[in-house]
Design a binder for these strands. Structure first.
Lengths: 193, 193
DNA sequence: TCCGATTATGGTCAAATGACCATCTTTAGT
DNA sequence: ACTAAAGATGGTCATTTGACCATAATCGGA
């Protein structure tokens, strides 16, 4: 029986079946209801996590109460808030479920044990953190340089699956534009065909 | 005689004097003139680097020729383009000197050798990559959520030294606002006192 | 030291964006 | 299946922002 993580590790690493099983067995399952918080701003991130099913968002909240979304869970995979986890500092952002979700969690002692037993896990961790930084940087450049329409088109290009899964106001919060502007863009593109 | 990196490693790591000397000796010095490119978009990043003196910018260029700055060199330290270095893929961005600068460079084989000899260097590398991702993420959040004035005030708060070192159009390119808007903000804050 | 290039500031104007409000539709959870 | 909540769209308006222009000041390299 494959819970999702086995398949992931099979295709993304060279770990043996035995190692993969050990990793999966060490995890604690966790379910999240829609909008349930997994990590709250100010809390210390105490887990590595793998999203088996569902969709999460990583977001910050500003003074007027509005949300701004840094990433969705496919990119979040494994790391949650890397800075908070690594340094045991309060997390700067929140993580919550968008859809009902199923996760696997590893506490720090459990995961450290796995890292000792399975050195190749180090490489994966490093790769994920590095990839995460790369994504943030690409997104930063888009935020600095692209027009709202370019941002939206880029999102449709890069995450076509998410376009239909997400409410528009979250896409707007992800792109850093207002819901109104997003609606206008889509309206214009509709008429154009 | 301290070239700058010795002092840095003394205060930021627990490396011994002997190890520090070995790291410094393995490096190749490099000077950059004002505006000289260290890494060009599309090139593969083949070095780790330490900025002994001067100031660099990491930037992308869009269709109309305008620059958008991702970071300045204090944060760049050591990593240059981590993604390009680690995976030997073409760099997505450029790095150039703002002021005449002095660097130390390590090619991949040389640096790998150091990593083998000095395991603690791994920890430093990881920390720098991780920190870099954290900075990108913080900046992304600011880009998504802050007004131009908030961005500028944040920059003055976080990098007071750079405010006087940089031409305004670069600050604007860093904050993702137009030079005109930046001038307006400063003008308003001037009158307010 | 000097000259050319870079940098800073200001004015005007058009356009894009966001805030607010209302309405209609769809969705989710019981 | 039903109902309340959430989501999507549209209209209007004020504001901000950026583009373009010109000019003055400053800086940097020979």
């Amino acid at each position: 029986m494959t819970t999702g993580i086995e398949a992931y590790l099979h295709t993304h690493t060279r770990l043996s079946d035995e190692e993969i099983a050990r990793i999966a067995l060490a995890a604690t399952p966790r379910s999240l209801r829609r909008n349930e918080l997994l990590l709250q701003e100010g809390q210390i991130c105490r887990h590595k996590a793998f999203v088996v099913k569902g969709l999460l968002r990583n977001f910050g909240v500003v003074a007027d109460g509005s949300e701004h979304i840094l990433q969705f869970s496919p990119e979040d995979t494994w790391t949650l808030d890397a800075e908070s986890y690594d340094r045991s500092t309060p997390s700067a952002f929140n993580i919550a479920a968008i859809e009902p979700s199923e996760l696997l969690l590893w506490t720090r002692p459990v995961f450290n044990r796995l890292l000792e037993e399975i050195p190749e896990l180090h490489a994966l961790s490093l790769q994920l953190i590095s990839r995460n930084g790369y994504n943030s940087r690409q997104r930063l450049f888009a935020a600095l340089s692209a027009t709202p329409e370019e941002k939206y088109n880029g999102f449709v290009r890069d995450c076509p699956d998410l376009v239909s899964r997400l409410p528009l106001h979250m896409i707007a919060a992800y792109l850093g534009i207002s819901l109104k502007t997003l609606t206008r863009i889509r309206h214009a593109q509709w008429q154009q065909r």
